[in-house]
Design a protein around this nucleic acid. Structure first.
Lengths: 128, 128
DNA sequence: CAGAATCCCCTAGGATACTG
DNA sequence: CAGTATCCTAGGGGATTCTG
């Protein structure tokens, strides 16, 4: 396989130049990875997710969940009762993302302080 | 450790509720992961990156590179010559992202078609 | 409870032109 | 070659209100 001409027919057929671009298109939403991360722990109700993610508005949560649903990553189960109960869970396909999200979590726990150091340092330089 | 009260002091000190949120803040830019993916292959010059990423504008490439630099993930080496030569490479810290980006690539190569199927299916439903 | 509907804003990101 | 400098806009995202 030619290293310099490494294109991906399956991908650019759909307008993606690079595999990573496709993945980002799927999980790149501001809250998607966090939703998935929460769902790794088990199915969650809508307001349960809201409580777990205090900074996301319910509008945004809805939108991101809809996109995850569209891509087949998240299942939405409606219990027909009053008051309503809706449960979100990872599909089998959604579980395929677990390694990625877990490695994102591991990375953050290991390197959070390093990132913050770099940021404050480069901020200090612009200040000076 | 209490599962229900699983907060991360190091993180929410900086305003992050969840580890994954921090990671997304670092690599969540539209092109950052792709840049990193390209740099996994070795150092690259500016226009070399542009050629590898046809869809990114040079303005955006510059901005994303600057942020990656700020966070200490990418190094910028300037060769003092005419015409100018600038080489971007992953720092040691940047290499820590390799597992994540690689798993993103693997995922895409495995599941691209499945994603597309789901998308066209859910599109068909809205059409109907 | 789990949302849909509006309204609105901001900024991430694009297009184009210029430069050391 | 490797960028700045402007200008501009689509849409990502927020706040609020309403509902089955």
């Amino acid at each position: 396989m030619d290293k310099e001409l490494c294109s991906y027919p399956e991908l650019d057929k759909h307008g993606f130049t690079c595999p990573v671009e496709l993945t980002m298109d799927v999980i790149g939403g501001k809250w998607k990875c966090i939703v998935i991360h929460q769902l790794l722990d088990g199915p969650k109700r809508f307001n349960e997710l809201r409580r777990l993610m205090p900074k996301v508005t319910q509008r945004m949560l809805t939108l991101q969940l809809r996109e995850l649903e569209r891509d087949g990553l998240v299942a939405r189960r409606i219990y027909n009762q009053v008051p309503p109960k809706v449960e979100y869970s990872l599909t089998e396909f959604g579980w395929e993302l677990a390694p990625i999200v877990r490695s994102m979590m591991d990375w953050a726990l290991k390197h959070a302080d390093t990132v913050m150091e770099h940021r404050s340092q480069s901020l200090a330089k612009t200040q000076a």
